[in-house]
Amino acid sequence: MRIFGLNRRIIRVLLGSQYAHMLEYRAEIALWALSGVLPFIMLSVWSGSEARLGLGLDGVALDRYFLSAFLVRQFSVVWVVYAFEEDALLGRLSPYLLQPLHPLWRYVAAHLGEQLTRLPFAALIAAVFFVAQPQAFWLPSLGGFLLAWLATWLAFAIAFLFQSLIAALCFWSEKASALERLQFIPFVFLSGLLAPLTAFPPGVRALAQWTPFPYLIDFPARLLAGQPVDLIAGFAAQLAWVALLLPLVLLLWRAGVRRYSAMGA
């Protein structure tokens, strides 16, 4: 069976080659993992602040929340736009478009390969954190872990589709990649990476719930940290965003490719 040109053999080959490719860049990926330390800096500010009482995260719960936020972020980082821009610039895009495989699959495989390479580094950073904060150590229940894993994957899917949408816009304008920079700003502040959503004033919090951002970090991180969450509402929102973005991406991408080939670039 083929879905958008995909079958089991192609999946195996794509994932294998992308993983080998990413392993070659492991030093670089280790640095990327390290550049995600922002949640730890915020944790240290929040722990000492007078405002932490309002968070509803007592004692080690705060440590666990920010560690989870760090981990969720590690496995939902998306960089399609940049890879796409580079491919377009270096002329690698045209041959990809000729292959009987949707080019986005190649990027999906690259991201999965990168996540696998990142895994040991992220684990190492988490281990260092537990050495520094042994009282915060916990093992999530199997069910909780699986749910958090699923939520992280869905977060990755939303982020990936969102950025693919921006990448598709690059078929029309070189400036489109600036959109990625602009959307990153509300993401950082509203996703829960820097402050749990419980810290927000009620109005802002309600507003944030209508954006995809809280489902990218806050929701999966709370699941992983073992905080009580509204499971149904969270997963429903994640699936709704996927369902909204997927057809948009496919339509826009197809129109973009048609435009690209019409220009004979």
Binding site: S49, E50, A51, K175, R181, L182
Partner: peptide
């Protein structure tokens, strides 16, 4: 684009900072 990014970023930072300050609260 640069201007817009700067304005958004500063707005976000101020919002984040305000979360640490309730009435009569200080940060460090």
């Amino acid at each position: 684009i640069e201007l817009l990014a700067v304005a958004m970023s500063l707005g976000g930072s101020l919002f984040l900072l305000s979360l640490f300050y309730g009435p009569d609260q200080t940060l460090g």
